[in-house]
C-alpha cells in the first residue's frame, strides 16, 4: 500500500459514521417510537401476547418453507439434467427458461388470480407456494446448473461404475456436492417468498391466512397510519413492525456472510 495520509483516514472514518447514521435515522425513529409512553417496553409485550402474531409467523414460515423446498427440489433436478445428461432439445429448453427471466410479475396478476381460483386453491398455502416456486425455478435452475458445470464429469463416471443410476448419481453425488449453491438458493428464495407482498395480496383473503408482509399493512391500517384523514394512534404499531421484521433480521444477522454473498452472486452472474 502507498503511504496514505493520516488526516484522510480520519476523514474517511468520519464520513462513514455520518453517512451510516443518516441512513439509520428511519430505523432509529421507529425504534424510538416503539417504546413510546404510555406503554414503553410494554408495547412489545402487548404485541407478543397478541393472539394473531403466532399465526402470522406460522403462515409465513409455511409459505417460505414450502417455496424453498419446491424451488430447490425442482431446480436441482432440472439443473442436474442440463449440466450432466445428454438429451435432444437441451439448448432450446435452457433458452426457454432464460427468456422467462424477463417476464414481469405485473403480467401474472390476472392469470394467477384466475388460475388459482379455478384450481380451488384461492386462500390456501399451496395456492401461494406454487406460483412463488414457479417464478423462482428458472433463475435457480440456471444458478445451480452453473455450479454443477464446475463439478468434474469424472465423478459421474465413478458413480456409474459403482452401479448408480442417473438418479443415484444425482442424489448421492451431485446434490450433496452442490450444497454451497443450495445455501444461496435457500437464502434468495427465503427473502423472495417471505417479503413478497403482491402475491399474498391477490391470492389470500382471510386475515388468519395473512403472511407477515400483509400483516404489517393491516396493523398500520388499524392504527390509522395509512390514511391522510382521521385519527392516527400509533400505539403498538412500531413494536409490531419490529416484531414482524424480526425473523428476517435475525436470520440475516446470523447468516450475514451467506446473505451478502448470495445477493451479490445473483447479480454478478
Amino acid at each position: 500500500m502507498l503511504a496514505g495520509d493520516k488526516s484522510l483516514r480520519y476523514f474517511n472514518f468520519f464520513l462513514m459514521v455520518v453517512v451510516t447514521t443518516v441512513l439509520m435515522l428511519p430505523i432509529l425513529h421507529a425504534l424510538n417510537r416503539s417504546v413510546e409512553p404510555p406503554g414503553g417496553l410494554g408495547n412489545y409485550i402487548r404485541v407478543l401476547t397478541d393472539a394473531r402474531l403466532p399465526r402470522f409467523y406460522l403462515n409465513s414460515i409455511i409459505v417460505s418453507a414450502g417455496t424453498i423446498l419446491l424451488t430447490a427440489g425442482c431446480a436441482s433436478l432440472a439443473a442436474f439434467a442440463f449440466s450432466k445428461l445428454t438429451f435432444p432439445f437441451r439448448n432450446t429448453l435452457l433458452l426457454t427458461l432464460l427468456v422467462t427471466l424477463l417476464v414481469p410479475f405485473t403480467t401474472m396478476i390476472i392469470p394467477l388470480f384466475v388460475l388459482i381460483r379455478g384450481f380451488d386453491l384461492y386462500n390456501t398455502y399451496l395456492g401461494l407456494i406454487l406460483p412463488l416456486a414457479a417464478f423462482g425455478v428458472p433463475f435457480h435452475t440456471i444458478l445451480i446448473a452453473n455450479y454443477m458445470n464446475g463439478l468434474p464429469n469424472e465423478l459421474m463416471d465413478a458413480a456409474y461404475i459403482d452401479g448408480c443410476s442417473d438418479f443415484g448419481a444425482f442424489w448421492r453425488i451431485m446434490l450433496p456436492l452442490s450444497m454451497p449453491v443450495q445455501a444461496v438458493v435457500i437464502v434468495l428464495t427465503f427473502l423472495g417468498s417471505w417479503n413478497n407482498y403482491l402475491l399474498p395480496l391477490i391470492l389470500l383473503r382471510d386475515q388468519e391466512m395473512h403472511t407477515v408482509a400483509l400483516a404489517a399493512v393491516s396493523w398500520a391500517n388499524d392504527a390509522g397510519a395509512l390514511s391522510q384523514f382521521g385519527e392516527v394512534s400509533y400505539d403498538t404499531l412500531f413494536a409490531a413492525l419490529f416484531l414482524l421484521a424480526a425473523p428476517t433480521l435475525i436470520v440475516f444477522l446470523l447468516f450475514q456472510r451467506v446473505f451478502i454473498g448470495s445477493v451479490t452472486s445473483g447479480a454478478i452472474k
Partner: peptide, 19 residues
C-alpha cells in the same frame, strides 16, 4: 447496517416511511 433495509419486507419499509 446499510444492508438491513434491503432484507426487510417492502411493506414494512413503506409503513415506516409513511409515518
Amino acid at each position: 447496517l446499510i444492508f438491513i433495509p434491503f432484507v426487510v419486507a417492502g411493506s414494512i419499509v413503506a409503513v415506516t416511511w409513511q409515518t
